[in-house]
Design a protein around this nucleic acid. Sequence first.
DNA 1: CGGACCGGGCTCTAGACAGCATGTC
DNA 2: CTAGAGCCCGGTCCG
Length: 745
Amino acid sequence: MFGFVGGCCGVCVVFVRDLGLPEGVVGVLGECGVDVLFPPQVEAVGAGVLGGESLVLAVPTAGGKTLVAELCMVKSVLGGGRAVYLVPLRALAVEKFEEFRRWERLGLRVGLSIGDFDSAGSELGGFDILVCTNERMDSLLRHRADWIGGVSVVVADEVHLIDSVDRGPTLEVVLARLRQVNPGAQIIALSATISNADEIAGWLGARLVVSDWRPVVLREGVFCNGVIRFGDGGVREVPLVDSDLSICLAVDTVRGGGQALIFDSTRRSAVSVARRLSGVLSDLLGGEERGRLRDLARELLGSGEVTEVSKQLAACIRGGVAFHHAGLSYAQRRIVEEGFRGNLIKVVCATPTLAAGVNLPARRVIVRSYRRFDSNFGFRMIPVLEYKQMAGRAGRPKFDAVGEAVLIAKSESEARTLMERYVNGCPEVVESKLARESFLRTQVLATIASGYASDSGGVLEFFGGTFYAYQFGSDFIEATLGDVLRFLFSEGMVESRGDVLVATPFGRRVSELYIDPMSAVKIRDGLRVEVERRTDIGYLHLICSTPDMPRLYLGKRDYRELGAFADEHMFEFRVDVPGEWGDPSEFEWFLSEVKMAYLLERWVNEASEDEIISQFGVGSGDILRFVETADWLLYAAYEIAKLLGLKGELPYIGRLRRRMRYGVREELLELVGLAGVGRIRARRLYNAGLRSLRDVASVRVEELARIPSIGRELAKKIKTQLEGKAGGDAVPPVSRGQTFLSDFE
DNA sequence: CGGACCGGGCTCTAGACAGCATGTC
DNA sequence: CTAGAGCCCGGTCCG
């Protein structure tokens, strides 16, 4: 491995005030208790980051990566520059945004831009530090926001994501594009410990700092036959109080006054461990704690529709335990996370959501399962990098002297394997996944549509700057480019004018809408199909047939039931329906699209969350995500119809889209436009005979307040909205849909 | 004859980014 | 090319 490693051995102390930073910066950090640099930060400074050097910083979680990035951003901004901070998750973006707002004291303007939210009140160009997701930055680049030219610092958090099959290519393209637009910008790439950080540094022309320093010592080990054997040679006995070994480890942690995080590979087992553990653990809780946990459980049940899942979660919480996975709504997740941070919830059983998500450290991390199902390969061992991410959650700075990460083995030989592979193992090499044709289609179109290249030579030149080309050379991309361009030509997204390649209006719109060109083709062709009548299922299935919509797992029963359902709607589909006796995998694929369309159809026809949860085996959080995606694709379908002059399609799609956002039948669309009125209250108003805004305007506040779930306050709020514009055409502004940001803004 | 318990076989499987602010010939 | 936990159902045994 080559690259720069700072000259400091870690024993010398470096004070923030000695870095030559403006007085204000030192003051803000001092107020936050930051006076001395961590060793990796010292190395970063030694590598010249504060002088504007680009840097790859491969350091464990909590090793102080963010501060290095912050110092560079603030320093550059105070010198007239502008910074963007890129993260892979929206929740992370919110977390960083909140953190960076401390610089507002120095007059810096900090902004946040993620898919369903933009900082209000100002153009994004008005911000000095902008936090956004990688995809959002990609989108901004496609729209050629003019402020991008002024960016002087780019921070890419979790840069090892480049290895991810579905989201890595976006990140590397964004970085390549930002460097193309702005060759002088300082790039700071933050990464977990990986094997080839030097390669990423080489690509970015950056210095490299690698360190395994952590503020809390981490001990990793394997639990087998009642004993944890640590990689450092230490041994620790744990009483076997239960047949489930992860429960023994968790109870042991809580007995010692700590908290534990259990990682599992499926939602079902995470939930079942949590339930079982809550029975065991409640004996260890104090009376006052029990009371506060009961309050927390009550808060949870009040945070949304009461469902089977929320009842189970509430029951666990009363026992000081919670489960956490992507089926939970944002409100439920927040309550679990805050309950854990406040040391009220003692153990959280989680799927990989928590491994790379928000920061939630615990004294002991228990890896209950190191295998995960993959539809192509069956169960496989998770990558070392992923294990290290989970292990890195062990040890709460300031609370725990030591953090422990423990794997569970059933036999001594398994224990040896785990020790070798995970505890003493080295994380995998990060490899570019850009070469998939679907990504190249998307990104070649974006490159042309946004004018970043005007001929195939320019396109190639751009892709020559990606990490893929750095790792594997441009030959493959060069070979594939012809196919990609042929596709874009034949689908009418790109055309040539002499030697110049230009995007058609269709191609440009597709790129801006941020959908896969293949999705656009499917939607366009589907909208042109003649159907007997327009139906929910017809449109919903169309968007579910695009590669941008996730698919639901098909159960055994689904084949019969969904087959019958599909038969019923046979003449509504806007795609060629594969024959039941044709290619079985093709028919299977079709049925899983139908399943998702069915779920969405239930939603827009006012099925309750709980009904959908039990019918489809999903959680509230899943429904929310599916609805969000469907909303986006319906918008795209609307825009494509408009562009293609398919005016007859517009009214239905427009209404369907609003119904999707609120989860209502058409008759409630008017009522749901009122702030404070969602699907539930709108239905109650309607059933009480108040079917339009005019009706609502015509009754007194007292009458309105008599409707269940509408109190006096809300009734007054509704009436205020209608004042002076009692006509049916006085539709108040549409409020933003329910998002996890709603209680943040 | 009915209920409880045991065992075998069947079922099912993690996560989460993106647009725009609307209705028409 | 790879697993394993939970649930349902059927069989058996005992009262």
